[in-house]
Design a binder for these strands. Structure first.
Lengths: 120, 120
DNA sequence: AACCGTTATGTTGAAATAAACATAACGGTA
DNA sequence: TACCGTTATGTTTATTTCAACATAACGGTT
C-alpha cells in the first residue's frame, strides 16, 4: 500500500489539460524528434498523442511543438522554446510535489495504514 | 488554469483503493449516521457508495464503518474507531499536500503558465 | 511523376467506470 | 405478524476513455 498522485492543470470545467502523461509525451518528442516515434516509444498510438498535444496547446494558448510534414524524412516534430521551458518546469514541479507527498504520508498516514496492530 | 491533484492509496496492481472520494464518503457517514443518507447527500447512489467502502475496507484489512440493519430505524452506519482515525489523518494529509502543491506551483509553474508574454 | 514516412483528422470499436434498476434480508415497533 | 427504512447484492444500462482502423495531405528524393 503506497501513496499515489495525479498532477494536472485544469481550467474549471475541463480536466486534464496538462499532466504527467503529456509531460512524458513532450519528453519523448524531444528525444525522438518525431511524434510518431514518440507515441510508439510510449506504446500510445499516434492518434491519441496527436490529440493530446493539440489539447494542451489549445489550453495553454501557446505552441509546444513545432511540427513539419513532408520532405525526405516524411516530417518531424520538435519542441518549441516554450515547450522546453514547460517541460523543464514541470519536471521540477513534479519532483517537488512528489517529495512533499512522501514526507506527508510518512507524517500523517504511514503508521496508521501500514502499522502493526491488525486487531480486526 | 489552476493546478489540481488526485490523491489515493494503491497497492501495486489495483488503483484507487482509498482517495478523496472515499474520504468524503466517510465524512458524510459520520455526519448522517447512515450510508443511504451519506450517499444521497453526495449525489452518488447507494450501490456505488456501498461498494466503495467495501473495497476500501478490504484493501486496508480493517473495518471502517460499523453497519447495522433492521430495527426501528431500519438500520444505521457509523464509523469505527479506526475509521475516525483514518478520516482525520487523511484530512491532515490532504491539507498538507494541497499546501505544498500551491507553493510548488507558484515557484515553478505559475509565471510560465499564466505569465504575460503571449507571443504566440 | 512516383515513392516514403510523417503529420493531420474522422470514424468506429472496445474496455473500464459509473449510474440505474431490481430484490432480498434484517429486526425493532405497532 | 405485517410494516418500514436501511443494509446487502446481482444485473443491466449508460457514459466516458482509450485503442484501432482508415485516409488524405505534404514535400523532399529519386
Amino acid at each position: 500500500m503506497k501513496p499515489g498522485i495525479k498532477l494536472f492543470l485544469h481550467d474549471d470545467d475541463a480536466g486534464g489539460l496538462f499532466g504527467d502523461g503529456k509531460y512524458q509525451l513532450l519528453l519523448a518528442i524531444r528525444e525522438h524528434g518525431s511524434l510518431q516515434e514518440a507515441a510508439r516509444s510510449l506504446g500510445r498510438g499516434y492518434r491519441k498523442a496527436w490529440g493530446d498535444i493539440r489539447k494542451a496547446e489549445k489550453a495553454l494558448g501557446r505552441k509546444l511543438v513545432k511540427r513539419a510534414r513532408g520532405g525526405s524524412t516524411g516530417g518531424s516534430s520538435e519542441l518549441t522554446e516554450y515547450g522546453i521551458r514547460v517541460l523543464d518546469a514541470w519536471k521540477e514541479y513534479r519532483v517537488s510535489v512528489q517529495d512533499g507527498i512522501e514526507k506527508a504520508y510518512e507524517r500523517y498516514l504511514r503508521e496508521l495504514i501500514e502499522g502493526g496492530n491488525n486487531d480486526r
